[in-house]
């Protein structure tokens, strides 16, 4: 994990702060940069925007997209939408947990993969879906997972 400096967040905050309701866009950008939203960064954003600490924290914890845990290099996720559920997403989930030795939301020991499940990604015809970063894999069989993981 790279160390960050709080001042590196300033350009992002400055870009958005003039707009009304800028908090969520700022959090998106900062998370894109750091991979997660540590408490001290949340407090820094609050101070810069002149809003209560509690507002930033409550927003970060309300939305499932925001995370306070550092993330691996890649996020691997299994879609749990209806079609994927029917087509065996649960088995993929179990298999991935086993292989990476993580619980949902956790990061593998080598810091490479963070595993989670996702709401429907809208590619139901290709169910079940596994996503690594922005790459989408359709009709995934459990035995194909090893091959997918090895590509990264």
């Amino acid at each position: 994990m790279e160390k960050y400096h709080l001042r590196d967040m300033l350009p992002i905050i400055e870009e958005y702060e003039k707009k009304a309701g800028s908090l969520i866009p700022i959090l998106h950008e900062v998370q894109k940069k750091l991979g997660y939203l540590p408490k001290e960064v949340q407090e820094f954003i609050a101070e810069e925007l002149g809003i209560p600490y509690s507002q930033v924290y409550s927003v970060v914890t309300f939305y499932s997209f925001f995370t306070m845990e550092p993330k691996g290099d890649y996020t691997i996720s299994v879609c749990t939408g209806t079609a994927c559920h029917v087509k065996g997403a649960d088995e993929l989930t179990e298999e991935l947990k086993d292989r990476l030795n993580v619980e949902e939301g956790g990061t593998s020991d080598d810091g490479k993969f963070t595993f989670n499940t996702k709401r429907c990604v809208g590619a139901c015809s290709k169910a079940p879906i596994v996503m690594v970063g922005d790459d989408v894999y359709g009709k995934v069989q459990t035995e194909e997972l090893e091959d997918i993981l090895n590509r990264y």
């Binding site: 408490k39 209560p52 509690s54 507002q55 930033v56 924290y57 409550s58 914890t61 499932s64």
Partner: peptide, 17 residues
């Protein structure tokens, strides 16, 4: 403030300190 969502909802002070 309220931190978290749904069943995870709870009362927190500032950034949960």
């Amino acid at each position: 403030a309220f931190g978290g969502r749904g069943l995870e909802n709870e009362i927190v002070a500032d950034a949960d300190v």
